[in-house]
Design a protein around this nucleic acid. Sequence first.
DNA 1: GAAACGATTTGCT
DNA 2: GCAAATCGTTTCT
Length: 217
Amino acid sequence: MGSSMSASGAAGARAQLSAPAVDVAPHLLGALVTTVLPDGVVTVRLTEVEAYEGERDPGSHAFRGRSARNAVMFGPAGHLYVYRHMGLHHCANVVTGPDGTASAVLLRAGEVVEGRDLAFERRTRRGVARSDVDLARGPARLADALGLDLTHYGADVLDPAGVVRLTPADPPPRWLTGPRVGVGGAGGDATAFPWRFWLADEPTVSVYRPAPPPRRR
DNA sequence: GAAACGATTTGCT
DNA sequence: GCAAATCGTTTCT
């Protein structure tokens, strides 16, 4: 499979992404995400992701059904779901599962392997880039380093000519799992599922933060 | 039409 | 370690 990466490769990759997010997530570890924007090219190697199972998952944005914001998650796999968080930040997901389901994988952290200077510059503009390790450690930092924002909502990451490209890698030999970050209050039981995946011995993996206590509405 | 909340990050005490 | 920043989306009256 190595040499040719055109239509058939994309089709195969799309088929793999069409599995449930929980199955796809570990396969994305080690994969490369590349953005080709007017100001340059940045590539990140994914070291941490989280699975979200759509309508049946209290922690998912799609739990309460389809809306204008999460519509892309209900579509075919391989597209980008970008949302704005806390007014300031952006987070990016890769849509998974068959067309009609709303599962997706949140890109939580990665290692910048190409375009380090550009990523550093973007992060410095937004805030303070302390070190290379911090460039893409955390979902909003990752999106910033890649230059992702709402204009990339729905982008096809398997389009070789697209501005956002996902390059699958060989499945990592070993990874770790644990509870997801920051979604404890939403469903309670949701945190019982180890739907966070990360690579061992990676300094770029974001630090674990205990979920906030449940709060009634 | 109005109010509350959030898959976070950063800065300050 | 804790609280503020900041604003679109969702939900309720």
